[in-house]
Every structure is written in C-alpha cells, then in structure tokens.
Design a protein around this nucleic acid. Structure first.
Lengths: 148, 148
DNA sequence: GGTCGATCGTTGGTGCGCCTAACGTTAGGT
DNA sequence: ACCTAACGTTAGGCGCACCAACGATCGACC
C-alpha cells in the first residue's frame, strides 16, 4: 500500500509530528507574512477577541505565549494600532490589553489567510480524516497539558 | 464530551500540529539531552545507518537537514568520534561520511531513549489511534514532500 | 581543451518559537 | 508592617529551518 516504507526515522511519531508541524509552520508563516504578521500576533489577537480585554499575564496563560515574548508581541501590535495597552486602575501592576477596531479588522484578515492555509495544509485529507486528526491531536494536547 | 470546546485558535489544525510538535520536541530534547545529543545528531546517525556511508549532500537530502546545518552536526559527531569524515577519492568536492562503531553504539542508545519518548508522548492513545495518527501524518508529509 | 553551468562543502547570518534568569513594582494575606 | 506572590520588563540562550555567498571541483558541450 505504502509507497514509502517507514524507516526507523520516518516511522517515529515524534519525527512525523515535528516534520508536519514544520510544514504547517512554513505555510502559516508564508500566509501571515503577506499581511505583515507572524504567529504570535494572531494568537494574541484571537485570544483577545475570544476572551475580551485582559492583563498580559492572563493573555499569556490563555494563548500559551511566554510572558517575556508577549511583551514584544504586544509592543508590535500596539505600534501598528491593533491593540491598546493601558494601566489597570484596579491593580497598578497590570496592564489591560484591548483590541482596537483596526485590530479586529486585521484579525479578520488573518483569519482569512489562515483558513486558506488550513486548506492547503489538509488538501490530501478528506473530511473524516481531518476530524480524526484534529481529535487525535486534541487528545494528545489535553493529556500533556495536565502534566505540565 | 469534550471538556474543552475548540475555539477558533485551539481548533486550528495548524495550531494543534505545532503545539503537539512543541510538546514532542520538548520530550525529545529532554530524552536526548541525557545522552548529550540533539535531534540532528540522531537524524544523521540514523540516516547513515540506514543508507550507509554518503556524501554530505546526499545525507542532507535523505535526512531533510539543511546542508549548512549538516556541517555543524557532522563536526560535533566527528568530535565525539561517532562519525568519520574523509575525502571522496572519486570526487574531490565530496566528503564521505561514515559511522564508526562508537557511533553505532551511540545510535543504539539514542534509539532506546527515543523509544521511551514515544511511549510518553503517545500515552493517551491506544494502539489503533497511534496507527491512525501515524498514517495521517505520513499522508500529509508525503503530499507536501512532492510539492517542495 | 577550454569554457560554462552545476554541484559540493563551508561560513555567517536570519527568523521563529520556546525558554530561563533577573529585577523593580505592586497587592495581599497574616 | 512584613513577606510572599504576582505582574511587567529586559536580556539572553537553544533548537530547528532557512538564505546568500564563496572557493573548489566536476561534467558537458563546443
């Protein structure tokens, strides 16, 4: 059936994962580069849009982005006017990060780009296979998320 | 069923892939760090063991490692005595890279480490699911490999 | 037989994602 | 009031994938 017999290397699940992820990452980067963005930007905007304004710490936890990287990402987004960082009156340690209207428009553009990327990524898989893949990965992710 | 409803972010196949790959990579790094190695080292040794001695260019093509990165990887492996780099008498542009006995022993050790990693990685999946995952990823990889 | 394009190995540098360590500021429990 | 914890920020490192350029060599073609 398989034209490519799995060797010890190419049969390794961890290898399959990282390789396909590399391809996915490449496609995502290409798609996002067209709108002058990268992965972190989308993750921040999407998370913000999903949960509403939040402190950077909350944002980091929800998006899975490291606090230290978040600073730069928010700087960049703020510089482009997609996001606003203002001090939290109730807690002077915190900043409240809010999406602007421009940010929401940008998010829509990114969503579109990414949807196209998913199509290109999953081309060889039919609907059922895509669902299977998503389910399996989600299961793996959920498991490893607990034991962190 | 799902305790975590997929949001727009966490439902994105590309996100699922890169996140699980990140976890996998972390586990692999940990496992390999115990034997003072990293991903490239294993890939080189495994490829060499699989196909026999080869030029760096061939090695790169087979292992999917960039030529420029291969130089460093081979340097490190050679410094540890796991691999030998000698000029090809038939083509003076080339180096022939060969695994040493020590390299084969190291490969065995890495194989062992990685086998354990796969177990940890795939813990939440049963046999059938593991096969499904491998099949799906292989399919994706095969497709994208052609259009490179 | 010389010329030209392709290949090989090497160097140096880029980008992204993930991570650690440290530090000053502020909140909050006790 | 003190001490711990959380927050934001800066600086830096690692691993993997990639690009651009270069000298050396090979091969094909005229």
């Amino acid at each position: 059936m398989d034209t490519t017999e799995p060797t010890r290397l190419t049969g390794l699940p961890s290898w399959l994962l990282t390789q396909t992820a590399a391809h996915a990452g490449r496609l995502v980067s290409e798609g996002l580069a067209g709108v002058e963005a990268r992965g972190y930007h989308y993750r921040v905007l999407a998370t913000l849009d999903e949960y509403g304004p939040a402190s950077q710490a909350d944002l980091g936890r929800r998006s899975g982005i490291h606090l230290s990287d978040l600073v730069a990402a928010i700087n960049e987004l703020a510089a482009r006017g997609y996001v606003q960082r203002s001090p939290d009156p109730d807690d002077r340690r915190r900043n409240v990060v809010t999406v602007t209207d421009a940010g929401r428009r940008q998010l829509a553009a990114l969503d579109e780009q990414l949807a196209a990327v998913q199509q290109r990524l999953l081309t060889p898989l039919d609907g059922e296979e895509r669902a299977q893949l998503a389910a399996l990965l989600t299961k793996l992710l959920a498991y490893h998320r607990l034991s962190s």
